[in-house]
Design a protein around this nucleic acid. Structure first.
Lengths: 243, 243
DNA sequence: CTATATTTGTGCGTATGTATC
DNA sequence: CGATACATACGCACAAATATA
């Protein structure tokens, strides 16, 4: 008979209270020392319970400020031939924004070279950044482009934050998603910071290759979505479900 | 300048050593007290580092036995119109096995009734279980079926563990996936136990409705995949990957 | 703007329980 | 059975970030 640990029972209790509305979205929970006193446990024990709730996305702890109940609305993100960030969010009444955090040109590793169908060790532009919906970060991404074909991509990106628009200037009028791999991971420190999540929170990970109309790869993209803010959907047939 | 916590630096070091092959798959790491001594930290601090690696799926701690490096091979699981567990694994040379852990008949909740297009409060059969590949648990699932139409499903499942076969006996010769939602989560205690993962490990979560050739929903299925053992793929065009 | 209190984050030490070998 | 090794839980202290007087 495995008896449930204290921290687990406390997490259940607090989670249920949040669900029941005792603490509403945006509210601050009582300080850890008070909660520890209420449950009659050590602060460490209570902290483990709170960490569990944070990983589940129910609360968010901010050092010096407190532990806050998170909001909770989820964006639906359809996967298919055509994956467009801005258009998807606009259709759901959300304002999309992309921030480029870094651009570098370097040699491709083996996996990148294969995915982009370039020579091993060929040069690539690597772009990383964060995607926001209505000011809330929903994903971090890293994209790799063949540098030889898209020499002036960094310059184009300096003028427009939209990757679609930047590619358009370089003659890639259209692109489609050849294949998408989906996995999951837990947020590391850097991702947690960018996405305003607790470390260890669940992320949906996608890895996909975009190709131009001739079938040549133009982008290898990896995206880490905050799982408590996004749901991906896969529809076997394209073309709307009719709202 | 944010100085990195000790536990984080230690996790990086150990993770790199595992990646470099200093500890091979299946190997046991030195005991916590030894590792704590090696890094000159308290056992708590080392445990947090190990917990981080466990969440990432690099290691697995077994009480009383030790901390072991996990194997690492990943199964590819294509999502599409036709989602068949046994056939998918067989194509990759893995032996598929499904264990039914529980069958109950109860009233549908609002979401289930809507997904299955039955009257609110109508009865459903709920099946839960675990899927294994070559003896390794890769997913836990819960499926809900309309009980009125499939009255003897529990009996059929008692004779064959295959859901496809059981449905076949009840006149559902074929079914296809209407839509799939994908998210991610971290493993709770029960899921961690069934999947032999650390609590907090990353899970890929899918939720899908299967429909018969006439378009009537026959199953609402939720699956939690161990993210370090499975990759889902989405191909815009159907038609086998050949293999 | 500065000083102080509050609150979460990290880390050590110790003790005991429980599963495995 | 005993020895080993991971799991839980308590206590104390200080650092870092934030809020407040």
């Amino acid at each position: 008979m495995a008896r449930t640990p204290l921290w687990s029972a406390i997490a259940e209790t607090l989670g249920a209270e949040i669900g029941a509305g005792r603490y509403a979205a945006g509210d601050r929970l009582p300080p850890e020392v008070q909660l520890a006193a209420r449950f009659g446990v050590n602060r460490h024990t209570l902290r483990r319970a709170v960490a569990t709730l944070a990983r589940r996305g129910l609360v968010e702890a901010r050092q010096g400020a407190g532990v806050f109940v998170t909001a909770g609305r989820r964006i639906t993100y359809p996967l298919g031939r055509r994956v467009r960030f801005q258009a998807t969010l606009a259709a759901q009444g959300a304002r999309a924004q992309r921030t480029i955090l870094g651009v570098e040109t370097r040699r491709a590793d083996a996996a990148e070279a294969e995915a982009l169908a370039i020579a091993p060790g060929g040069r690539v532009h690597a772009i990383s950044g964060v995607s926001h919906a209505d000011g809330v970060p929903v994903a971090v991404f890293r994209s790799v482009f063949p540098a030889e074909r898209l020499k002036s991509l960094p310059a184009a990106l300096a003028e427009t934050a939209s990757i679609t628009a930047a590619l358009g200037r370089l003659g890639v009028a259209d692109y489609t998603r050849a294949r998408t791999e989906i996995s999951a991971a837990t947020a590391d420190a850097a991702q947690a910071l960018r996405l305003r999540l607790a470390e260890g929170a669940a992320l949906i990970v996608t890895r996909g290759v975009n190709i131009d109309p001739e079938g040549r790869p133009v982008e290898l993209g990896e995206t880490w979505f905050a799982a408590d803010r996004v749901v991906l959907t896969v529809a076997p047939e394209d073309g709307g479900f009719g709202g």
